[in-house]
């Protein structure tokens, strides 16, 4: 399988090489600033083989880290992968170059439900890359009681058996859900109101990890987790004992996007790469390696029934999922609360 996967880009390049033979490869480069573990090397190699464009791939582990480095202006990035709420902030701050859809022949592959979302209502600046949720993963061999909600996850019986994302906003959001509040109502009062809930949770948590929460679950150091769906999907593929559920109280949907920073130097190449990623075959390669929810309808047709049946990648829910909005200064209050609570333990 691995072998096949590494051969695929070559095959793809050969297939598309014919199609693009008319336009001689222009070359040049593309500075891609993306999430760690999100763009398969095979995709980058395939793109370079086809277009001659050299891709410099620099990574980050959180949207906030991306924003910090982008604003510091250290590198000149041509293409970034912001999550929805960070893209919203970038759009409001006038920090993105509009995406020219005329240069993206494969834009039509995207499912309409992931377009014109609140973060980019005019669909001018962003292109959806992958979509996902944050939910509960359970090792059903170790935990036999049903765990379908935050309340059932954070109970005394699971003390020291839980890993959660090391992400203040995700944790405060989960606490807001249990209080029946809107996840974007991040007022100082609401954030302070989650303190008792979170304080009780923090006593039960074994570790915080955003980069690779699946590791502790696979190692058997913990049995439950509040994690990105992609991590849960990989666990499920590894061993069916790992089950993913969206919490009953509510869960949120995140959309990771492709966007071009205002001061990008290789805007043409950025468009080329976006369109390359939008191709059904390429998008499928991404899904093979990083099983998040694919917003590309044409790519979904290429996925195996098994991939589509993975409950972490394609969760079934009758509840409408919420999305994060830009919350401005509230981030500081969240951070202060989390630091204080971690410190109290």
């Amino acid at each position: 399988m691995k072998m096949l996967r590494s051969l695929l880009p070559l095959a793809l390049a050969a297939a598309f090489g014919v199609a693009t033979a008319g336009a001689a490869p222009k070359g040049g480069k593309l500075n891609l600033f993306g999430w760690s573990e999100y763009v398969p090397q095979a995709v980058i190699d395939g793109f370079t083989a086809e277009t001659g464009v050299k891709v410099n791939y620099e990574t980050y582990a959180s949207g906030e880290e991306m924003l910090a480095k982008l604003l510091a202006g250290g590198g000149s990035y041509d293409l970034i992968q912001p999550p929805d709420y960070i893209a919203e902030a970038l759009i409001k701050g006038g920090l993105l170059t509009p995406v020219d859809q005329a240069k993206l022949p494969h834009f039509g592959n995207l499912m309409p439900e992931y377009l014109h979302m609140p973060h980019d209502p005019e669909q001018k600046f962003t292109v959806p890359f992958m979509v996902g949720t944050v939910g509960i993963v359970v090792n059903t061999e170790k935990v036999t009681t049903p765990v379908n909600s935050y309340a059932e996850l954070f109970t005394e019986a699971h003390k020291n058996r839980i890993v959660v994302l090391d992400d203040g906003r995700e944790l405060v959001t989960a606490a807001l859900y249990t209080q029946g509040k809107d996840l974007n109502a991040m007022t100082a009062e609401n954030i302070a109101g989650t303190r008792p809930v979170l304080a009780a949770w923090f006593k039960l948590i074994k570790l915080f990890d955003s980069d690779s929460p699946k590791t502790a679950l696979l190692n058997g150091d913990v049995d439950l987790g509040l994690v990105w769906c992609g991590e849960a999907a990989i666990l499920h593929n590894e061993d069916k004992k790992f089950r993913y559920v969206l919490p009953k109280e509510g869960a949120h949907l995140f959309v990771d996007l492709l966007a071009i920073p205002k001061d990008a130097r290789n805007v043409e190449n950025a468009h080329l790469f976006i369109d390359y990623l939008l191709r059904a075959e390429v998008s499928k390669l991404v899904s093979d390696e990083f099983p998040y929810t694919n917003p590309n309808a044409a790519a979904r047709k290429l996925l195996t029934p098994e991939q589509l049946a993975n409950p972490a990648s394609y969760p079934v829910t009758d509840r409408k999922l919420d999305t994060f909005r830009h919350i401005g200064d509230s981030g500081a209050a969240i951070d202060e609360l989390i630091t204080d609570l971690k410190n109290a333990n």
Binding site: E64, E65, A68, V163, I205, L207
Partner: peptide, 19 residues
């Protein structure tokens, strides 16, 4: 497990998470 915060963690958090 990112539970026992030391001063280095706090500074790193302030740069990359709380910005």
């Amino acid at each position: 497990g990112a539970k026992v915060a030391m001063i280095g963690n706090v500074i790193q958090n302030q740069v990359f998470k709380a910005r």
